[in-house]
């Protein structure tokens, strides 16, 4: 069952044209900036979709349209069966949102008091609230700082509290905009464990992140966005196959090897020096086993290393390529 359905979403911002300072006071030029231009998206229950793209691609803008904070300029959106811009208040009860940069809790209140307030706001029955809170406390380890005012929490503690706050009312859909930003390794893995748990309960999760670990560990599917359009949609493996089809073998010889090295099917071959070489080949055409067997048979090999590409390589090569095409990076806004 699709909990998020988006067809042809378009969103413009009106931005002021930059001008020389004093002249700016007397002019009124603005232009439309297309932040999102025709996006289609589906997220099913129990699915985590990674929503990726370089800075300024339009990710946060999409999420704002999906939560009903902004109305789209064109396109059809259904989140949990509702049109966000028409029925924002109703939708609010069915979704949870975490903007990693910005806390939804009350700065001066202890975490538990914030939760109590949220219970009232979302009309959650007391009994259910208590059960839910116990669960979340156990899952996220909130008890150590439950009575500390939010402003005194560390970043990781605050994000964990925010995650709990977003889930207190049992939403069907969860939007996470960079939830692991600034977290240490332990906190990150805690958050990831938590998201997997949520997925198991049938919540649809749309996750924006620049952390590739999040993507590899969590995402059933990824959508890569560039300047407002979808560039790729599919599983992580498909992305690897399409954008990082090469694996490489780095070989070290036990004595100097002069002359050229011959490896059948190798896409390219770099000699580092007389003792080392790097062989790049397409996974689809050749197996690592065949390449290493050939090397072992033909040369005096001392050591061998095989490296598989990661999602990081995909994103790096993709973003770099995009950056080249755009002629430099655009200034980013959260």
């Amino acid at each position: 069952m699709a909990l998020i359905e988006v067809d042809g979403l378009v969103k413009h911002y009106r931005v002021r044209k930059p001008g020389r300072s004093v002249r700016r006071l007397f002019t009124r030029h603005s232009e439309l900036k297309e932040a999102v231009r025709g996006i289609d998206l589906r997220v099913d229950a129990g699915e985590v979709v990674g929503y990726l793209g370089p800075n300024g691609a339009g990710k946060s803008t999409t999420i704002k349209c999906l939560c009903g904070i902004m109305a789209p300029d064109a396109g059809r959106i259904r989140v949990a069966g509702l049109d966000p811009s028409r029925r924002r208040l109703e939708l609010a009860r069915r979704i949870g949102v975490v903007f990693g940069q910005k806390t939804a809790l009350w700065w001066d209140l202890p975490v538990t008091e914030s939760f109590e307030l949220l219970r009232a706001i979302y009309d959650v029955p007391r009994e259910r609230h208590r059960r839910r809170l116990d669960e979340l406390t156990a899952l996220l380890g909130l008890d150590e700082f439950a009575h500390v005012p939010v402003r005194q929490l560390s970043l990781g503690q605050r994000v964990r509290s925010d995650l709990a706050a977003a889930l207190l009312h049992d939403p069907q859909v969860l939007f996470l905009d960079e939830p692991t930003i600034g977290l240490d390794a332990a906190a990150k893995s805690g958050v990831r464990r938590f998201v997997r748990e949520i997925r198991a309960r049938g919540v649809a999760v749309l996750l924006t992140t620049h952390d590739l670990g999040d993507i590899e560990e969590l995402c059933d599917r990824i959508v890569i966005l560039d300047r407002g359009s979808v560039l790729f949609e599919g599983s992580v493996d498909e992305a690897l196959g399409r954008y990082a089809p090469h694996s490489r073998v780095i070989v070290e010889f036990s004595r100097d090897v002069q002359g050229t090295i011959e490896v059948p099917f190798a896409d390219s071959l770099h000699r580092r020096d007389d003792r080392q070489a790097e062989i790049v080949f397409k996974r689809a055409e050749e197996t690592a086993a065949a390449v290493t067997r050939h090397l072992l048979d033909a040369y005096p090999v001392r050591d061998l290393r095989i490296t598989e590409p990661s999602i990081e390589d995909v994103v790096k090569s993709l973003y770099e390529e995009l950056g080249d095409r755009a002629g430099g990076a655009e200034p980013a806004r959260g």
Binding site: K64, C67, I69, L89, A92, V97, F99, K102, Y122, D123
Partner: peptide, 10 residues
């Protein structure tokens, strides 16, 4: 973004 937070509540 405080307003955004308010807008996602019922």
């Amino acid at each position: 973004g405080t307003l955004d937070q308010m807008l996602v509540r019922p």
